[in-house]
Simulated assay, not measured.
Amino acid sequence: MQTWLSYRLSDLLMFSPATYARLFERVNEAVWPGHLLLAALTVAMLVLAGSRGGLAHRLAAGLLATAWGWVAWRFFGLYAEINLAAPWFAALFVAQTVMLLILATIGPGLALGRPRRIRHWLGLGLALWGLVLHPLAWLATGRPPVGTELFAVAPDPTAIATIGLLLMARLSRRGILLALPLAWLSISALSWWALLTA
């Protein structure tokens, strides 16, 4: 028991901070020039979610599901090369993809309400962080542009923006849809903590 208590979180890491940073560069290199299409689909998702049509809201939820599915396949496919737990993380993203597809098909879709409540303003802030500020924050730390974390390419900004969008959405029950993005951000926070304290 004493031996187990001597372990730190950083002892469980299978890769170095440099290797993890290089992962994002590899993902961006593999996706380019698909970033342009992903950016167009993201704008389309926001426009559809902000419109009044029910079909548009369903399409918006479908596009958000596509973003989660893409990250599950593309990012975690590469992440599996340095982390044995990556397939489990990918399964989490696939589960979120399925829930968003259910929202798109038999649910109300993703319809953004007007930011009148604190929840809506918090959601707007998180959505802006995930979509715009998160990549800029990484650039400000000196990371090269090719290593930037982007919505629909990297898991963290995708989860953050999704939480923001769901908080802004006109949904009677959003708790289950928030659970997996929050779970991923907790896992990611622990990983970054371990990397920075190693």
Rank of each mutant, 00 (worst) to 15 (best):
T3P: 02
S10M: 05
L12G: 15
M14W: 14
F15Q: 09
P17F: 08
T19A: 15
E29G: 12
A30V: 04
W32I: 12
W32L: 12
P33N: 01
A39E: 03
L41Y: 01
T42G: 02
A44D: 02
V47T: 10
V47W: 12
G50I: 02
S51H: 07
S51C: 06
R52A: 04
G54W: 00
G54E: 00
A56K: 02
A56L: 01
G62N: 01
L63N: 05
A65K: 07
W68D: 07
R74I: 14
F76Y: 14
L78Y: 12
Y79S: 01
A80M: 10
E81R: 13
I82L: 13
P87M: 08
P87I: 09
V94I: 11
Q96M: 11
L100Y: 08
A104T: 02
I106F: 04
G107S: 07
G107N: 04
G107E: 05
L110G: 03
R114P: 09
R114E: 13
P115H: 05
H120W: 06
L124K: 09
G125F: 03
A127K: 07
W129H: 14
L133H: 10
H134I: 12
L136G: 01
L136D: 00
A137G: 07
W138F: 15
L139K: 11
A140S: 14
P144C: 12
G147A: 14
G147T: 12
A152H: 04
P155A: 08
D156S: 15
A159S: 13
I160S: 05
L171W: 08
L171R: 10
R173F: 02
R174Q: 09
G175R: 13
I176P: 10
L180C: 05
L180E: 03
P181T: 07
W192L: 15
A198T: 11
